[in-house]
């Protein structure tokens, strides 16, 4: 059965995050607390890296179940978007990511107070990358860059759980049709199945946030529909976890999110017995 390979230190897999850093990302996404698209995606990356680190944390440190690259594209360039000590690096073992955020911020966050209300608290927020927005949108080049990283990874880890490429963008590619390289990267495979390409679309086009849809009918524009069409279907066990998290799923459910949180994708990955409360 595909997508059933163990994810372990002896059989790790990789994540490649592609981050749109083009000029259009400086536009606000709208909503109650207007935020630039660039800030939304950098927060998403920092949260994803935090979630992955916590998921793989044990008392002796973070285990290298994953190697992760954060690739920025924009400013006429495609390359590592890590800041701090990891600057310039592509795939980095997760333990090194956890030990080397560029800085650790304290942010305020509203959490349930247990009595139906909300109370403000301070949370630790590690930061590996800051918002950047300038230049064009070489998405095609970025996917080709990921293709190169994943291809090399697969040659060294042929039996791994299939790598996951997650593209975070407003979808306005200007170096050609991204659909072709997207199909090419999904044609790469380990012995456990084809590479997964997921997309987080941030947009100021309005409409309701959409998480893991199975059709493009409700999406607001052509960019969203293109990104939906480029996204892999969620493997069955991921669909099951998505359903447990309250999302409506079908066999056509894709790894695509529109103006919503995609951090839950980390929880779709099995690294052992889950720590879930008795219900």
């Amino acid at each position: 059965m595909p997508y059933s390979a163990e994810i372990s230190r002896s059989n790790p897999t990789c994540f490649v995050f592609l981050v749109d850093q083009s000029a259009s990302m400086s536009d606000s996404i709208g909503g109650e607390t207007p935020n630039s698209k660039a800030a939304v995606v950098s927060d998403a990356i920092n949260r994803l890296l935090t979630e992955l680190s916590v998921k793989c944390a044990k008392e002796e440190g973070v285990r290298d179940y994953f190697h992760v690259a954060v690739v920025g594209y924009g400013h006429n360039n495609v390359g590592s978007a890590y800041g701090g000590a990891l600057a310039g690096r592509d795939l980095v073992p997760l333990s090194q990511i956890a030990e080397n955020p560029a800085r650790v911020e304290q942010r305020s966050k509203k959490v349930p107070d247990g009595a139906g209300g909300l109370v403000e608290t301070t949370v630790t927020f590690p930061v590996w990358m800051d918002p950047v927005s300038n230049g064009g949108t070489p998405m095609r080049q970025a996917i080709e860059y990921a293709h190169h990283l994943v291809d090399k990874w697969l040659s060294e880890h042929p039996a791994c759980f299939p790598p996951i490429v997650l593209n975070l963008t407003d979808g306005e590619a200007n170096d050609g049709d991204p659909v072709v390289p997207a199909a090419a990267i999904q044609s790469l495979a380990s012995a456990d199945g084809p590479v997964l390409l997921f997309n987080l679309h941030v947009s100021d086009a309005g409409g309701s946030p959409v998480t893991f849809p199975d059709a493009d009918a409700g999406l607001p524009d052509a960019y969203a529909r293109t990104l939906f069409g480029m996204s892999s279907a969620l493997p069955s066990h991921m669909r099951a976890y998505a359903a447990q998290e309250g999302f409506t799923v079908s066999e056509g459910t894709r790894g695509f999110v529109y103006n919503a949180d995609i951090t839950s994708v980390v929880q779709f990955l099995d690294i052992g017995t889950r720590a879930s409360d008795l219900r």
Partner: peptide, 20 residues
Amino acid sequence: TSSPDLLNSKNHDRELIAER
């Protein structure tokens, strides 16, 4: 499965444990 019932070191709910 990877989500069996578990005893949590912070679970003080005697009734829930007895029930499950």
